[in-house]
Write a protein that binds this DNA or RNA. Structure first.
Ligand code: ZN
Ligand code: ZN
Ligand code: ZN
Ligand code: ZN
Lengths: 155, 155
DNA sequence: CTTAAATTTGTTACATTATAACAAATGGAA
DNA sequence: TTCCATTTGTTATAATGTAACAAATTTAAG
């Protein structure tokens, strides 16, 4: 629950990259900054629009390259169910087999880095001969906030 | 493990639709048939190509409408991680909170309808105030066959 | 410092995935 | 039959993502 300021988060990300022998360039930092400050998940072309405010020359490859890099080094996650991206709040924790709770209403994401009950799941599928990769598991549903405001229906 | 023939599977699907007050029209049946006979998951435009062999007028909406219908009635599942679709081998079982084991190498899918350990997961996220929806969970990794043939790397 | 290699970025074009919108056809109920 | 709802045909376009190659920048030698 360490609530770092945005610059502190960016500096921590910077150090994380250096540790791994990678560079957090200006563009990559800007994209990460957008994701961090936005809070909720963002789509690639929404990131592009925002990025173009400060970098008018930015094009789709600009954004996708930065996103690919940030995914590689584990600073962000991709949400397959939304075709969207979200900053990882705890990139320094080793989270093989983490879980992402994706709200279908507000598109907010809650991340669970390493829950004990996940081993039940990985053990069970391993017993079936399946070797899970290291992606995060995505669970779609309604966050607590949206349950209250949304009596009946998800989007 | 009932290995029904394709016509038997299609007839069972037909009855399933009728029970639910829905109609398995020719197009829908053809799309389901392609998915059932293909075995592995298929992409929408691959389904379209195959469908056009017998229905030259088929266009993207033709396929997407059929897929939407089959998803609605639970005869197929969508694989968010692959933008692909797969026939549900056990559509008659109530599988809220099922699991799909998606092989990153061969794109084969193994479905686990209702595993006891899934309740650990749903209970845990419910305790966090999150209400999971009724989609299937997707776990990416390597199936047992591909592990043997693939010493090192997933795709 | 100069040069060469590697990485990153700019730029254009294109590929893939999915949907909007509206007309035509089909199938049942009144 | 006539009306209405559902399904299908058709065209166009939106949304998401990548290929390919040139230019710029950074890094590492020489
Ligand atoms: Zn994370
Ligand atoms: Zn929400
Ligand atoms: Zn199923
Ligand atoms: Zn496989």
């Amino acid at each position: 629950m360490a609530t770092l300021t945005l610059p502190d988060q960016l500096n921590a990300a910077q150090r994380w990259c250096v540790t791994r022998g990678e560079k957090l360039t200006d563009i990559r930092r800007d994209v990460l900054s957008l994701l961090l400050s936005h809070g909720h998940s963002m789509k690639a072309y929404d990131i592009l629009s925002e990025l173009q405010q400060s970098r008018p020359t930015a094009a789709p490859p600009t954004v996708y390259r930065a996103l690919d890099f940030l995914l590689q080094v584990g600073l962000i996650h991709r949400l397959d169910s939304l075709n969207a991206f979200v900053a990882c709040p705890e990139f320094a924790l080793p989270h093989h087999h983490g879980v992402l709770l994706v709200c279908e209403n507000c598109h907010g994401v809650t991340e669970i880095a390493d829950a004990p009950w996940m081993s039940h799941l990985t053990d069970a599928v391993a017993a079936l001969g399946f070797t899970p990769g290291h992606q995060e598991l995505e669970i779609k549903g309604l966050c607590s906030a949206c349950q209250k405001t949304n009596p009946g229906a998800p989007a």
